[in-house]
Design a protein around this nucleic acid. Structure first.
Lengths: 154, 154
DNA sequence: CCTCCTTTGACTATTACTGACCTTAGTTCA
DNA sequence: TGAACTAAGGTCAGTAATAGTCAAAGGAGG
């Protein structure tokens, strides 16, 4: 758990946490230099870890004075936010989609890391037991478990 | 007695005991090398000995910087009791069987009345959404929700 | 023998990282 | 004013580093 990408991810998240505005602006070249890597590594991190599904918004501009801005989606009410996310879960869910949603909720303090791990474990176990309809079962389980958490907390 | 798998199991458990965080991270290739076996042997040990029912959560990531993390979850008397109950039922569950289990667990103060109602509601909701495999889905959902409830309490 | 658990290895899947090449935007100067 | 230059960031495909799957072979106990 210590790839370069992880460190860059952690660094950006740390910057985000200490930002009042819920968004940070960074220079790709500068960043690449700081982490001694090629600039496109920054794009890799952004496109794998700071996606909309995970609750982040990335904007950028090229040319002189160019920049990359990373923002978090606004969450005023955790519960309604989670409910909306859940509704966006259709009748099927891939493992990656599930992960993105869980990370999204964890990063926005709707669920804890322990809860995330437990859900992943439970779903993994249940899904491995059946042959067909894995994506459908995953959607049901994730919806149900999240709904249960949210309901219990309110 | 004392197969290679047993040794690997014991080694991981030893690492877990001496870990402050109740979880250890290991490299599959490294491990296989240490025990002079093929990497998939590690998967065998993990999938037969470090299951959720036995109180372990296994997470992993492939690719560069990949890892396998084994974590412990508290297994209380309540957990094993409920798990046994569910195992006796198997992979399918009728509504009546489900109710019997839920009532039993409520009577023994493993879950509250509210939780009982919540589970029933969630399961009803989810099961009504699908055409086939209702009993299988019900079993999965009840198992998962109960496990989650009990784990979260400890 | 028969069965169950273990062990192996060939094949597959996923993730990280790099570098060459492309696009966009601002700046300068004939 | 627009061509050339400079200063960003973007894309994509290839390589390397891990882990996962599955079925077949092996072995110990009944």
């Amino acid at each position: 758990m210590s790839s370069l990408a992880d460190h860059i991810e952690a660094y950006i998240k740390k910057m985000l946490r200490s930002s009042k505005t819920n968004s940070v602006e960074l220079s790709r070249a500068q960043m690449a230099d700081d982490f001694s890597c090629v600039p496109s590594q920054i794009n890799y991190v952004l496109s794998t870890r700071f996606t909309l599904e995970r609750g982040y918004i990335v904007e950028s501009r090229r040319g002189g004075g160019g920049y990359i801005r990373v923002g978090r989606v606004e969450v005023t009410d955790c519960t309604s936010h989670a409910v909306r996310l859940l509704q966006s879960v259709g009748s099927e869910l891939t493992e990656k989609q599930m992960d993105n949603i869980l990370v999204h909720l964890k990063d926005h303090q709707v669920i804890s890391l322990q809860e995330l791990r437990l859900i992943r474990g439970i779903v993994q176990q249940e899904v491995s037991k059946i042959g067909q309809g894995k994506h459908v079962l995953r959607a049901s389980l994730v919806r149900s478990l999240l709904f249960f958490i949210i309901e219990s907390k309110s």
